[in-house]
């Protein structure tokens, strides 16, 4: 995995591209991430950079953390995360140095990890999109139930992984391949196409995407020209047709 950074989710809005395409975007604020400590394989068994971001009052920092920040010669930060880094690349970032938008240079899409909004203990209709039961025709006290959960004496148990009611949300979610629409270095803002997990003001982790950028009218992308390698695959044929059709009116 490539090295990532911490950013704050600001919220969503929409922007116009030059040719008039309206794009829904999530705004992320990327305050400088400071290298607080380095994990090395000799001592820790792995290599990683510990980054910190966001300011915090001195009174909220315990002694252990104070020592950590003093070593890196930085002010205390509220959020700390470790990002795995290749051993060979460990030297590119000094202890106490700041990493910001420059890490995103030349990156067209990002993967974003965050903690999704908690929905509490949710029923199967909300949590797993079950259909529920008819609102009439004799349905009695069974409107939002999931129905049967298994067979009879054989297998005599409920199969593992059966989708049932339970905690929904408040878990780590990663959204892959969000297109970078705009980078605003003066304001430390990044505009990504689409939604990002979590509520406004929360920290998310951003990584250069491991995937090929998707075709997007008005923005383009490598996938625009390429389809599936397997011509027999019906599902892929459709997905190939769509971006091509979307691009066609532009090219003619």
């Amino acid at each position: 995995m490539k090295m990532g950074l911490m950013a704050t989710k600001v919220g969503m809005t929409q922007v116009f591209l030059d040719d008039g395409v309206r794009v829904p975007v999530t705004v992320l604020k990327l305050e400088p991430n400071v290298v607080v400590s380095k994990k090395v394989s000799e001592k820790d068994g792995y290599t990683a950079l510990q980054l910190g971001t966001g300011m915090i009052r001195q009174s909220l920092v315990n002694k252990a953390k104070k020592g950590l920040f003093a070593k890196a010669n930085t002010e205390p930060r509220r959020h700390l995360r470790e990002f795995r880094v290749d051993p060979a690349k460990m030297d590119t970032h000094e202890l106490g140095s700041q990493i910001g938008l420059e890490l995103l240079e030349g990156v067209t899409s990002l993967d974003v990890s965050g903690i999704s909004k908690g929905k509490g203990f949710a029923g199967v209709m909300k949590r797993h999109n079950f259909a529920g039961f008819p609102g009439s025709h004799g349905t009695h006290e069974y409107f939002r139930h999931g129905g049967s959960i298994g067979m009879r004496a054989k297998p005599g148990k409920v199969l593992k992984g059966k989708r049932m009611a339970g905690q929904m949300g408040n878990e780590t979610v990663t959204v892959q391949n969000l297109r970078v629409i705009r980078v605003m270095p003066e304001e430390n803002l990044v505009l990504l196409r689409g939604a990002v997990p979590g509520s406004k003001g929360k920290i998310v982790e951003i990584y250069p995407s491991t995937r090929k950028p998707k075709a997007l009218p008005g923005v383009g992308g490598q996938a625009l020209e390429e389809g599936s390698k397997n011509p027999m695959k019906a599902s892929k044929a459709g997905s190939k047709g769509k971006p091509a059709a979307a691009a066609a009116p532009k090219k003619k």
Binding site: V10, G11, T13, V15, K29, E187, L189, K200
Partner: peptide, 9 residues
Amino acid sequence: MANLISMLE
């Protein structure tokens, strides 16, 4: 935060 959004808009 909300100001940033309205600034962009």
